[in-house]
Design a protein around this nucleic acid. Structure first.
Length: 939
RNA sequence: GGGCGCGUAGCUCAGCGGAAGAGCACCUCCUUGACAUGGAGGGGGUCACAGGUUCGAUCCCUGUCGCGCCCA
């Protein structure tokens, strides 16, 4: 017996467990050994993460694809896992240490700290996995991977070393985006531009040997300590003559050249800009063009350097702990030392923002501040730390992304990988074609430590294992005579003796470096596993547009370089889930909707169906509780339809073939089922999730429930016999097909119904999740459609008239001047029409009785003798309205047909169609005229 | 400044060359045996604006105006 109501919270956990117990999600099930493979890798959520609405959408869509393809018989691998989220995880654990008042990361040292991180991961890292299960995600959890696990780490090392040996990874001194709070480099992509209201300070720089000034405008006066030039546009009429002269840098007295460079926009600010190559990306380029040595005046914490204390960019505290491997140790040049010495002592060691204030005061005191203009501009912020990012000159590891991008661009150009919707290609190309070197080193501890070892002279040895790096290094230094054979042997056999002769790079790789390998590293690469062979390349990648650069592009590069093949055939890009008002969900706005809360209240199926129905390509989804409620109602509707079927003894019949149905009603629902399954299948294949969901919704509610169930009632409650048996079998069959068609969208309720409906009829072979997707051939039936379509239209027309005329009482129906076919049809369906349209009796006549209301249904006249029952004036008004419509239709079509050019240009079938339209409209008008005549007679 | 996208019923959105659609909301009626988490019916749109292409434009092109997002 099916319960009266469906309670998701009582069912979902049990159903999920049943799937897992059956190993339903496992790739490589023996019976599918010959099946085509289908694979998707999950965009790995952060191990620190918990499920938000974006995940819910992303994973619902992947789950629809996976369940669909699994039902289509494929050997599906949905590869799950999480990434180690270097910065985020390290921050979480450090915060935890602080809260517990335990020693900090530096105090406990790298090894101890990493133990703490792993302990944290073991305890809290599985949150999101549990949450994905509540959503119904059919991942192969037996293959769950983690970017820091052994296999993936092996892949990372292999890739790093290979690219290094190929010259595609190298160390370089460049400006990076430096996070002065987290004390690490971050990539361009981790920087958010934030609009900030600041000032444009106009500062007077004295011109050497004159009493004149050149005025520069800047948003960052504190960087003037590191100025190396002033630039003006070479064609600047007012200032051009100053090129070649020198300015005297205020407060420090350093002499700096005035150079001509078209970077200085004559229209902007004062037309002259200060050049600070060590603290600005544009200035760095200008500096290079003019051979100017950068001067770094800030240390890694964003404080003014103090040359008396130390000359590295590290602070004193850092110096105590540093080893030579740290990339931040940078040699300081002699001119730089001189420049640092010139910095007023009261500024040294001050924070950058304090310095700004102080410098402004000092300049004002010196009378060198020309003016201060309020100025709103974009300021880079770290997306994790939320502090202002500092362009910072350091040694870091880079990937030559430009070289790797060539193939990645070509693969999309050649259509090997397709973006859906297609227009994302443009975004991809724009970025790929202007790609910058990818900074992959991070000054963190949690991550894949860079496999590079340095000798005493700074020479670098890169290898997958320490043994290999050490042996190569020792051989090298033995050859150069730096060490003796004995020393070499000693260090080779005793790891503890290596330091400080050989030290390992302390830094780790960007988390995205390991994520870039995800489509193959998770399959076991670099080992030659059967999974790599079978499941690479993957079929589709489903992700948000925000990580096209971070992730998609990099997977393309790495996949093509190492696997010689694209990582995925299709990239489906979905949009954002917004709140019901269309605002972006954010913690600070407090409008975040928790998917787990929605699942608690409405069930996972309702949430999934809502997201699927909203997932139109290229559109954000506005999620309102109202929509979720509607889809919960849809689930209820389905549940009740199943109850109806069960009550009426409509059990499945073994070997039932819908093709053999005799009853028009049954042939009709088979026809409609085939149509719906075609629509749904095509839509999913084309990633039109909203269309697929809408087609399913329409079929279940507006076809099966509204008409098939209603029309089947007389048969099901009527006398026993072949027709009743057939209807029972068909009702059950169609319900089964519905369960299958809805399963990818609403897996829980459909699986539950699959189970409870199994109590009647033959035993089920398998869980719904593993059953076969509907493929219906030979069920299309135009004749059945014409028959049932007529019944539906007739009933609808009568109901409509009733509502309009406000007539509720039963009434007789007279079919006037109908064809033999219609007459036969009416006789066949008399009982149904009577029941659903509240008709007391059906009769036939040559002409409609006087004073009757006449309806035109598919060309036939249905008359309802309502003299004295309805307001005939109202009926006249209704008919006149109909007539106006018919006349307008005729007029429009005739205008077209009278147009010579139209007749000449239009394709034959369109012309035919138009002619038919005309005939239909004329006939319709005639019927209306006739009806009006009858009415006249009745008055 | 460059790029992408969007302005269609009160709301959320489909449609994207041949007679304006759905869901929700709204109004009217209905506790008839699956379902009131329901049923039946209805009203409601110069498809942002202005040009152009076409026999024909919500759909294609150009421009304007609004609104997003991404990259400088």
């Amino acid at each position: 017996m099916i319960d009266k109501t469906y309670t998701p919270s009582e069912v979902e956990g049990r159903i999920y467990a049943a799937w897992e117990d059956a190993g339903a999600f496992r790739a490589g099930r023996p019976e599918r050994a010959q099946a085509a493979p289908y694979s998707i890798v999950i965009p790995p959520p952060n191990v620190t993460g918990s499920l938000h609405m974006g995940h819910a959408l992303n994973n619902t869509l992947q789950d629809i694809l996976c369940r669909f393809e699994r039902m289509r018989g494929k050997d599906v691998l949905w590869q799950p896992g999480t990434d180690h989220a270097g910065i985020a995880t390290q921050m979480v654990v450090e915060r935890q240490l602080m809260e517990r008042q335990e020693p900090g990361r530096r105090e406990m040292g790298r090894e101890k700290f990493l133990e703490k991180v792993w302990a944290w991961k073991a305890e809290s890292g599985g949150t999101i996995v549990k949450q994905l299960k509540r959503l119904g995600a059919s991942c192969d959890w037996s293959r769950e991977r983690f970017t820091m696990d052994e296999g993936l780490s092996k892949a990372v090392l292999k890739v790093f070393v290979t690219l290094f040996n190929e010259g595609l990874i190298y160390k370089d001194k460049r400006l990076v985006n430096w996070d002065p709070k987290l004390l690490t480099a971050i990539s361009d992509l981790e920087v958010q531009q934030v609009e900030v209201r600041g000032n444009l300070w106009h500062i007077k720089y004295p011109i050497e040997g004159t009493s004149e000034f050149i005025i520069v405008a800047t948003t960052r006066p504190e960087t003037m300590l590191g100025d190396v030039a002033v630039a003006v546009h070479p064609e600047n009429e007012k200032l051009g003559h100053l090129i070649g002269k020198f300015a005297i840098l205020p407060l420090v007295g350093r002499r700096i050249p005035i150079v001509g460079d078209d970077y200085a926009d004559p229209e902007k600010g004062t037309g002259a800009v200060k050049i600070t190559p060590a603290h600005d990306f544009n200035d760095f380029e200008v500096g290079k063009r003019h051979d100017l040595l950068p001067i770094s005046v800030l240390n890694r914490e964003g404080k003014i350097r103090d040359y008396e204390k130390h000359l590295s960019l590290n602070t004193e505290e850092e110096l105590l702990h540093r080893t030579r491997g740290s990339v931040v140790v940078t040699d300081t040049s002699e001119p730089e030392i001189q420049a640092l010495k010139a910095i007023p002592s009261e500024l040294r060691g001050l924070d950058r923002f304090v310095t700004r204030k102080k410098i402004v005061e000092m300049l004002e005191d010196a009378g060198l501040m020309d003016k201060i203009e309020p100025h709103t501009h974009m300021v880079p912020h770290g997306d994790r730390s939320n502090v202002v990012i500092e362009p910072f000159l350091t040694d870091q590891w880079y990937v030559n992304a430009k070289a790797l991008a060539v193939q990645a661009i070509a693969a999309v150009r050649e259509g090997k990988t397709n973006f859906v919707p297609k227009n994302w290609e443009k975004t991809y190309f724009d970025w790929m074609e202007n790609i910058q070197p990818w900074c992959i080193s991070r000054q963190l501890w949690w991550g894949h430590q860079i496999p590079a070892w340095y000798g005493p002279d700074g020479k670098v040895f890169v290898a997958e294992t320490e043994e290999e790096a050490v042996s190569r290094a020792l051989a090298y230094y033995q050859e150069t005579g730096a060490i003796s054979a004995g020393q070499a042997t000693n260090m080779a056999t005793h790891p503890s003796k290596r330091e400080p002769f050989l030290t390992r790079d302390e830094d780790v790789l960007d988390t995205w470096f390991s994520s870039a390998l995800w489509p193959f590293s998770t399959l076991g690469w670099p080992d030659e596993t059967k999974e790599v062979k079978r499941f690479y390349p993957t079929a589709a990648l489903v992700t948000g547009f925000d990580i096209i650069f971070f992730w998609v592009a990099r997977m393309m590069m790495m996949g093509l370089h190492f696997m010689k093949e694209i990582p995925f055939k299709d990239v489906y890009i979905h949009r954002l889930v917004r709140d019901e008002k269309g605002a972006k969900m954010s913690k600070s706005k407090g409008n975040v909707v928790d998917p787990l809360g929605i699942i608690d209240d409405y069930g996972a199926d309702a949430l999934r169906f809502t997201l699927a129905r909203g997932a139109a390509q290229g559109h954000d989804i506005k999620l309102s509780p109202q929509h979720v409620e509607n889809n919960r109602n849809f689930a209820t509707k389905l549940w009740n339809a199943a109850r109806f079927v069960e009550f009426n003894g409509a059990a499945r019949v073994a070997g039932f073939d819908p093709k053999g149905a005799k009853e028009a009603l049954n042939r009709w629902i088979a026809h409609e089922t085939a149509k719906a399954s075609r629509e749904i299948t095509e839509a999913i294949v084309e990633y039109r999730f909203n269309d697929a969901a809408a087609a399913a919704y329409r079929f279940v509610w507006n076809v099966y429930c509204d008409w098939y169930v209603e029309l089947s009632k007389p048969l099901l409650t009527g006398p026993d016999g072949a027709a009743k048996d057939e209807t029972r079998a068909m009702a059950a069959w169609a319900l089964d097909e519905i369960l299958k068609l809805l399963h990818p969208f609403m897996p829980f309720i459909t699986e539950e119904l699959w189970k409870v409906t199994a109590e009647q009829g033959p035993k089920r072979d398998a869980l719904l999740v593993l059953s076969a997707w509907p493929a219906h051939d030979g069920l299309d039936d135009a004749k059945a459609e014409a028959e049932i379509g007529w019944v539906v239209d007739l009933i609808t027309a009568i109901r409509s008239m009733r509502a309009e005329m406000n007539v509720t009482a039963p009434m007789p129906l007279v079919l006037a001047g109908t064809s033999a076919e219609t007459k036969a049809r009416a006789q066949r369906w008399a009982e149904f029409v009577k029941r659903l349209a509240r008709i007391s009796d059906i009769s036939f006549a040559e002409a409609a009785p006087q004073g009757s209301v006449q309806l035109v249904v598919r060309g036939d006249v249905a008359a309802l003798p309502l003299k004295g029952v309805v307001d005939l004036d109202a009926e006249r008004a209704r008919l006149n309205k109909e007539m106006a419509k018919a006349e307008a239709d005729i007029k429009r079509v005739e205008a077209k047909l009278a147009n010579e050019k139209f007749v000449a240009n239009v394709p034959e079938d369109v012309l035919e169609e138009e002619k038919e339209k005309r005939e239909e409209a004329i006939a319709r008008k005639a019927k209306i005229v006739e009806a009006l005549e009858r009415l006249k007679g009745a008055a």
